[in-house]
Simulated scan of single mutants.
Amino acid sequence: MNPIEFIFALLERFVPISPTKIEQLKAEGKDWWKKMVDQNENPTGLLVPIKKHSNEWYVQSGLAVLFIFAVKSVSNWMNGDSDED
């Protein structure tokens, strides 16, 4: 799971977007991710190390685990659940 897949997994779960539109957005997101940090165009910047390390197994596994907690957090936020109650 790379950062783009993580974002779209959350969108699919919580945002009422038509399947056609979500697939279009996913395709555009994946295309952007592929050409975002082309080493020939811009070898510096914050996105270079993010993209470089996002292909590592530990980052992808970490995002998959983070997804579990993100789903709970977003669900609690949307339902208005709070620890302060």
Rank of each mutant, 00 (worst) to 15 (best):
V65N: 07
Q60I: 01
E41V: 13
V15R: 00
S73G: 11
K52V: 10
E41T: 12
F67R: 05
D31F: 09
G45L: 01
I17P: 10
S82A: 09
K30C: 01
N55D: 14
P16Q: 01
L11E: 00
S54P: 08
G29P: 01
K72R: 11
S18Q: 08
I7W: 00
K52R: 10
K51N: 14
F67M: 11
N76Q: 06
N42I: 11
L66H: 02
I50N: 14
R13P: 00
V37N: 14
N76I: 02
I7M: 02
G45T: 05
D83T: 15
V71W: 09
S61I: 05
F8Y: 13
I17E: 06
L11I: 07
S61G: 10
K35E: 08
K52I: 06
M1S: 11
L63G: 09
I68K: 11
N76T: 00
G29M: 07
W57K: 13
K34A: 11
S75Q: 13
E12W: 01
H53L: 03
S75F: 01
F8T: 04
W33I: 09
W77D: 13
N55R: 10
T44I: 05
K52M: 07
F6A: 07
D83M: 12
K51C: 10
E56F: 15
N42W: 02
S73W: 04
D38L: 05
I22V: 10
S82I: 06
G62H: 09
S73L: 09
Q24L: 14
F6P: 09
I7T: 08
P43C: 06
A9G: 09
N40P: 05
L11H: 00
K35C: 07
Q24Y: 15
I68V: 14
M36N: 11
L46Q: 11
L66A: 15
G45V: 02
Q24P: 03
A70C: 04
G45H: 06
V48C: 00
I22G: 07
L66M: 11
Q24A: 05
F8P: 07
K34T: 12
L47F: 03
F6N: 09
D83L: 15
K52F: 04
S82H: 07
K51V: 10
I17K: 00
P3L: 02
